[in-house]
Every structure is written in C-alpha cells, then in structure tokens.
Design a protein around this nucleic acid. Structure first.
Length: 167
RNA sequence: AGUUGCAGGUGCCCGGUCGCUCUUUGCUGAAAGGCGAAGGGAGGAAAGUCCGGACAACACAGAGCACCGCACCACCUAACGGGUGGGGAGGACACACAACGUUCUUACAGACAGUGCCACAGAAAAUAACCGUCCGCCACAGGCGCGAUAAGGGUGAAAACGUGCGGUAAGAGCGCACGUCCUGCCGGUGUAAGCCGGCAGGAGGGCAAACCUUGCGGGUUGAAAGCUCACAUAUACCGGCGCCCGAGGGCUGCUCGUCCGAUUGUACGCCGGGGGGUAGAGCGUUACAGGUGCCGCGCGAGCGGUAUCGCAGAGAAAUGACCGGGGGUAUGCACAGGCAUACUACAGAAUCCGGCUUACAACCUGCAACUAUUU
C-alpha cells in the first residue's frame, strides 16, 4: 500500500478518481488563477474540458439562465460551479427548423466555435479574477449561412454585453 | 470531331497560420498537470430509413384462427421484396407482312370455389331484343304479342369465338371444314418455367395494385438494445452482533450474587448481504458475409485459392477556420501563345454489414443513334 503515507482526504480522493461523479464537489479541483490564465493568453484553444457536455447543465441554462441576443445570434449564460479548472464551458446550437441540412448546421457551429476560440479570453480573465464559473450556450436563429466576418462582428458585440452584465 | 440517350467509373489538388479528436510515445513534475513527437480521422450516396441480416434482451409444449408480406422458372447469397441467367406476354427499331435479329418494359399463381364491381354512352355490361328480320293475330298503307331470332345497324375501352359452306320461317357452334383460344392425355425436347407435335373434350367478356382462394414465409422490441461498475442515499427483505425477555446450567449442599445462555420479541442502533434508483463511468464499439492485386472455375450474379493491407470512432456529437497558389468548366475580350470574371456539385458517420430508392457540378470509358468533315 504505497498510498498509506497520503493524508486521509487524499486517499479518499484517490480511491474515487477513476469515477467522475456529479456529487464529487468541485472543492478539490483547483481553479486556474488569473496568473495561470494570462500565461495561456497567447494560445487560443478549445479543448474537451471547455466544451459544455452535461445535459442537466444545458437544461438549467435554459430554465434558470439569462440571455442576450443580437442579429440572429443569442447567448444564454448561467453562473454556477463547474467540474473543470476552466472558468467557462460553452456549447453551440443551430435549430433544425432554421437549417434543415446537417452540413449547413455543422458549418455554422464550426464558425461560431472558431469565433469563440479566438475571442473568449477577456471573459475568462474577468471570471477568474472573481473566482466564479459560468456555462454558456450559443444559438443561431438566422435563415442564411453567415460568413466568418459577420459572425465575428455579431458575436463580439454579444461578448461585450455579457462582460458588462457580469461585472 | 460534336450532340443526344443508356450503362459503368472518378467524384479537385498543393502550401502556410491557428485549432479539434483518437492511438502510440518522449521529456518534465510529489501530484494535478505542462511542453512536445509520430501516425489515423466522412461518402458514393455517409441521405431516405424502404427491405434483408448480424448482434442483444424478453417471450416460446403442440396445433388452429386472425393479421402482415411474397407470388413464371433455375441459380447466386448469411438473408432478402436484392442480383444473374432463362421463359411467357407486350412495345420500339427494321420491314409489304411475318419470321429471325437488336433493344426496352413487365407484382407474370388462380376468374369452371364463392361473393362483388364494370363510370359515360347504350335496349342490354352477363339469367342480353332498341332498330331490324321472321312468325302469329286483328278492326290490315297500320297496330298488337308474358312469340321466335344475336346475321346486320347503332353505343362503348369492352357486346357473347373468326371465315366459308350447310341448315332454317328467319336465324344461331345448331352441324361441318379450316383457324384461334382453353382443359386433359400421349410423344419429343429442356434441370425447370416452357417449347414443338398428335389425340380427345370444350369455348361462356374484363377486373384478383376488389374481397377472396391456393402455396410459401413471418414471435416482439431495437444500441436511448443490452451487460458491468462506483459514489452518495431512502430502504422491502435476509443474516450476524448489540439491546430487551430469560427456561435451564456452572461456580456451592441451599439462598443471594455472578457467569454461560436455549427460546421469544425487536419500535431501536451498528455491520454485512440484497434488490431499487441516478443519461454518472466503462464495455457493447469498430477485424470484418473486410478491401486490393493475381490465378483458376462459371454465359453471368458469384465461388475457390493465394499474396498483401489494417482503413474514422465522436458522444449537445471531432474530422475544422482563415489566407495564398494551382487544376477543371463556362462566358467575354483577343483569336498565334494569352487575359479577365464567375462557378467548382449533391451532401456530413452515430452498432455494423448486404441491397433498393432518391440527389448530384465536372471529367473519363464503352455501346447505340444522328450531324459534319476528311480519305
């Protein structure tokens, strides 16, 4: 038993570690500090942990969260502790009734994800400074397929709105 | 050479910057993690979810009914409502016509088992009499008939086998000859469907994608199937211990005391099992009715042998975004080489296979037809 020299609490954590559970409190997940984030500021990533994947949380965003919208784009957000070190988790959606073909929905979601990847840092910094976390849901309800530039302009204005709302 | 049709195939390429996912792996760190490296990463339809399987859970003595599906024959296949080959029927080409040929289409079992339906028109759509023809009667240029008649006319998509002769009051497969079709039997041929010939009997429309009959097949639900696990928690139930009751026994011959303790109960506490529940995690889950090449067999769909390859695995769902360059096609200007602009389809895996159907820019190959030019 090489674990015996660990403190009792950590032994418990080690025993539980193979199984991620919803009840495991986020207390033992150390949040990224603002300093650590600023070290990452140069890179623009969007990895699995930054993706919103829990169905329960998504339902909560729509039920209890707030939203801002602009020119077809809508942004739902909900401040809550997350099971990750990152300050935010994001998801993207395009309803089927606006775009019937899966190819077009995929294209729009990829554009939105690209804009988010490149422009999310200010929100990350703001949340990390206050030691809180938030889940966000992007939604596009336009009938046309936007190009990257208009996509970026409209989403940036929503990001600014959200930043003002949070601070 | 071009155009059109049919069949089959391919279904844009290269570089840069910033990213995603999976596998393997290096360095670093006590750990969480951090920084890398190499490799894999949508389709011919991934689509529609229309068939058939594999797989899984549940159900299941046997038989019948109901319901659903299929329907010329043989073969291929894991299986099929799919495919290949053949037959029948029906078109098209060619042609005086037919045959042969080429090619296309075809849910193609049964209408003497029964029931039903057949618009409009027409007298009548299946136990036919409007006109006509013949016969009879009367009040005789005409009328009447609970008379006969399916040859002719007209209607219709379809009118009660066709032509000729006989026959008759007039007629009629009423009889005969030839022909057509159906059924049965025999002979030849073919694995078979069938085809060819002969004999006998019969002939009285169609519709089974009308009910139906016959034959064959079908258990239900689908990966949110299903299996496993963990944390916390309420707890049916079971076991153990504690607790409560304490027959009896030991310590002594007796009482008290104390120890052991059958048995009964357990509202309660603890421990273990247990089933329940939570879209939490893992498995199922990507190796195969597998792809490609070669050889052999088969008319063919395919089959056999052999060599070789390892070829997505996400999970509110990766396979991308931006920029630059090059192909290709179309149009315009030039028309000797070019230049500019536009377009670059249909469309995104979700357990996996085999089909079918539908969508599709451009290019390639083969066949057929047509047009033009050259020899």
């Amino acid at each position: 038993m090489e674990e015996k020299y660990l403190p009792a609490g950590e032994q418990e954590a080690a025993r539980n570690s193979p199984f991620q559970t919803r009840n495991a409190s986020s207390s033992h997940i150390a949040l990224l500090t603002a300093d650590e984030l600023s070290a990452l500021a140069g890179s623009c990533t969007f990895c699995k942990e930054e993706k919103l994947r829990s169905k329960k949380l998504i339902d909560k965003i729509f039920a209890e969260g707030k939203s801002v919208s602009h020119a077809g784009f809508a942004l739902y957000y909900y401040t809550t502790p997350l099971l990750t070190r990152y300050p935010m988790q994001a998801a993207f959606a395009v309803p089927k009734r606006y775009h019937r073909l899966a190819v077009n929905r995929n294209r729009i979601k990829r554009l939105m994800r690209e804009v988010w990847r490149k422009n999310k840092m200010p929100l990350y910094m703001a949340l990390a400074a206050r030691q809180t976390q938030a889940a966000v849901m992007w939604m596009y309800r336009g009938k046309s397929i936007p190009d990257y530039v208009t996509c970026e302009q409209r989403m940036l204005s929503l990001i600014h709105k959200l930043q003002n709302a949070l601070t």
